[in-house]
Design a protein around this nucleic acid. Structure first.
Lengths: 241, 241
DNA sequence: ACCTGAACACCGTTCAAGT
DNA sequence: ACCTGAACACCGTTCAAGT
């Protein structure tokens, strides 16, 4: 029909608004797909289908699937950086701890919206621009509180993946199976073989029977406990070294 | 030739010592293969080939590949338990820390011989018999030092994967690429964008120019620093709570 | 420049069949 | 009881070809 309209800088909406593929659209679609249907549903074919395109078209914008994973991490860490940037800088040298705490807990909040992210992050080399930017600003917070570089370095390692807001939960469910009741029942059945763990879980579930929400552990509480343990330890070392 | 020898309990070695497949042999072969050629080489077909058998034969001893992974973890944690069992129990209530430390560092030594293990461990539910046994004995060490169950519980979570001897190294290489020199060069090139990290690495590599062995971080040192930070924090809380 | 069809080499797994 | 051949439904990826 309209062949002669293909001239130059035409900006009206085409009859079928076929948005052209870009690297950014591919990566964002990958993140959305993983958010919605899990990492195992993220195949090149599914991803292409999501974009209304054939699988092979993706390879024009992305070298291979590894590069898709790299890009997805950048998207997520980019979101973290955006949130973290809006946090007020520490008021004084002694105020480093609450600010570092809020930074890391903000990162965690973002990650909680992308449950697949930790698994992917763990397989990356973590030297992308957004990741370096995050660690650089975290490093800056410590510097502002007069930490020695040596202590900052050790502290970053001590934090590990916790710095980005996640930790491998020791007794995580594989995907959605493993209900906590079954685990508790199994433990009870093994009371003689694992006396310490059995007694511990028994006493802990008894202690807070008013606030038991999901299983025996509140992940957020445990995360903050570990985080504070490390931050308090660093604070103690700051003057001593 | 010898058809009539198929009688009953015949124990002489057969002419071709075709060892029959067992679940244990399959799992041990899987561990060996992953040790030798990496996790990505561990396919059902490769594993079968290693055992001189067709791929489909494996399914008689193992339900699927997930069960192979589960079994491999049990083999490795079994090795850890064997080493840990030989550690002397703490002499007194105050001696808990060196014993816990040695336990965890022993676990780490075993894991260092199975580089694929962390990645697989992170995707398991960690409720197998050997894993529970390990955590139960760790829990017992804390109990022996009069820790409250609540503090033990929080402490286990704070340790996280460190309890089993590993942590996701933040800037780990993917498999074998990423040489540290290239990373340093890249950082130098980005000195303006990441001033804190740049200055930190510059100073740290300058500090210990006598003992720089591999890149800027000694993983063992960092692991022990983080471990001690947490153990010291727990010690401080033990009396206070 | 951007997208596609057909094809390749590989997966894990099923199932009926062999001994 | 233990192992296998053939086949299925899926991968990621290449490559020559289309517009």
């Amino acid at each position: 029909v309209a062949v002669e309209v293909q001239m130059s800088t035409q900006t009206e909406a085409p009859p079928e608004p076929r948005i052209p593929l870009t690297r950014e659209r591919v990566l964002q679609a990958a993140v959305d797909l993983a958010d919605r249907r899990g990492l195992k549903s993220l195949t090149m074919r599914n991803l292409a289908h999501e974009l209304g395109v054939e699988a092979m078209s993706l390879y024009y914008h992305v070298a291979n699937k590894e590069e898709v994973f790299d890009g997805m991490v950048d998207v997520v860490v980019g979101e973290i950086n955006e949130v973290v940037t809006r946090i007020d800088p520490p008021a004084g040298e002694a105020d480093w701890k609450p600010v570092v705490r809020r930074t890391i807990l903000s990162a965690r909040e973002v990650l909680l919206m992308h449950p697949w992210a930790p698994e992917v992050l763990e397989t990356r080399s973590n030297l992308s621009e957004p990741t370096l930017r995050y660690f650089d600003s975290l490093c800056g917070l410590f510097r502002g509180a007069d930490f020695s570089f040596d202590l900052i370095h050790h502290g970053m390692h001590a934090l590990g993946s916790r710095a980005l807001g996640f930790t491998q939960e020791m007794f995580d469910e594989g995907d959605d199976d493993v209900d906590p009741d079954a685990a508790a029942a199994m433990l009870e059945q093994m009371a003689d073989r694992f006396p310490n763990i059995t007694e511990m879980t028994a006493q802990i579930t008894h202690d807070d029977d008013d606030s038991v929400t999901l299983g025996w552990c509140d992940d957020q509480t445990e995360f903050e406990f570990g985080l504070d343990l490390i931050l308090d330890g660093l604070e103690r070392l700051r003057g001593a070294v």
